[in-house]
Design a protein around this nucleic acid. Structure first.
Lengths: 240, 240
DNA sequence: TGATGTGAAGCCGTTCACAGCG
DNA sequence: CGCTGTGAACGGCTTCACATCA
């Protein structure tokens, strides 16, 4: 299960989103209605990839389709939810409640899929005690105890770049399993030197970091505007 | 220049950020000070990749270093700015001024690098006329004329997912060269069928779309928390 | 028959070893 | 001598053709 290409996981997320749209469309229609089924080519067209790719991606996780017919929308959606780990509740804390953190806290859709915001943290005295959503901002010093008590699974990191590393360290030390880093900074897992070789310190073992960097997106865009890809990647051939 | 791996471009953005930090550190020090120079291994350590990777990435753009010495921080930074297209002014409009759009508008750092927000657009009557930054929100109907007049280069798309496609279409028709899409949706360039083959419609020709999807980041994170990569990708060997 | 499932081929990006130069 | 520059090996992802089964 771990030898699935990382790019495939990103596409799975896209497929899931498309399936949700298809399921809404199919809602209420009789079970015999073809709207309950989707072919790899149709999924591919919506996702902007090839049908080959769709079939290969889905096959990593078992025989999810029916030959000659396609994929059942409901079944496939349920399977993708399971694969992506979205069929359980995830307890989330947000660290950093400046504009970005506030935007995240209030972003609709973020609290779908059983993501539950259970705590908000900042070091700015002006923010501590403020309420967002139904939660009150606490000082980051409280983080470690809170994560233990509340069984927090992951932290969203939305502090200014110069504080991102220490805040990430606080999250890892507190015992979260994942960090979604919004700061334009590379988070450095602390390593220990033992017998001359560097190894991951215990607190960072198994901690996953994913990055969402919007400034980086801006800069990639300027590069590609001035250096357009020769082969236009936006029109795959085999779709449909 | 177009056969550079897309992953390399993302790393270039990271290197640039690191170089900015190094240049601040070196500021004021005499020209002979070693702080003005950086070796591939040091850059690699900061970026979380291998020194091989750094050298290969930089080599796509010429002989930027000095053998036996390393890379001059100032020179390398200037080159990366040039390569990434960050040495010119970019006129940007933001479409969608809900919470996310507002957060982007006000996010510090976004207006560095000669990114200039020149227009704000929305279709919500309650928002039109409102001021953010130094700009007043206009109706999206005004977009086409505005892009022509003001020589707009790119648009940031921060509308709700269900309106993303039509707003993207408006941006492309208006003539922007790039779209930074924040909505969790795959933007579909309009294609025309001519003699049985699909081809990109004129208005989408050369339009680059980059995506920044924070919900996708959340979902990838849940997958990797439950399916940790076997080989820990966070500790490359060759750094330093 | 018409779709998925899947081993194999091909391609692209990363890793490497060492050549090249200050 | 040290570090960059770079062609070649390697590995992994994507593409493909076709076997497979409802």
């Amino acid at each position: 299960m771990s030898d699935v290409p990382t790019a495939a996981i990103s596409r799975l997320v896209t497929y899931l989103r498309i399936l949700e749209g298809l399921e809404r469309d199919a809602e209420g229609k009789p079970p015999t209605d073809p709207a309950h089924w989707v072919k790899s080519g149709a999924l591919a067209a919506h996702a902007g990839v090839t049908a080959f790719q769709v079939r290969k991606d889905l096959n990593y996780f078992g025989r999810l389709g029916t030959r000659g017919t396609g994929y059942n929308v409901h079944v496939l959606r349920r399977e993708l939810l399971r694969v992506l780990g979205l069929n359980q509740t995830w307890n989330v804390v947000i660290v950093g409640l400046g504009r970005l953190g506030q935007a995240i806290t209030n972003y609709p859709g973020a609290t779908d899929y059983q993501f539950q915001y259970v705590g908000l943290f900042d070091t700015n005295p002006a923010l501590i005690g403020t309420r967002f959503h139904h939660l009150t901002v606490q000082h980051t010093d409280e983080l470690a105890a809170f994560v233990q008590e509340q069984q927090v699974d992951m932290g969203f990191l939305a502090v200014p770049p110069e504080h991102a590393q220490e805040a990430a360290q606080a999250l890892a030390s507190a015992g979260v399993k994942g960090i979604l880093n919004f700061a334009p900074v590379v988070i450095q897992p602390r390593t220990l030197e033992r017998n001359g070789i560097h190894e991951l310190s215990e607190e960072w073992r198994g901690v996953i970091v994913e990055n969402v960097d919007f400034l980086a997106g801006m800069k990639r865009l300027t590069f590609y505007i001035r250096n357009p890809p020769l082969k236009d990647a936006t029109t795959p051939e085999d779709t449909e």
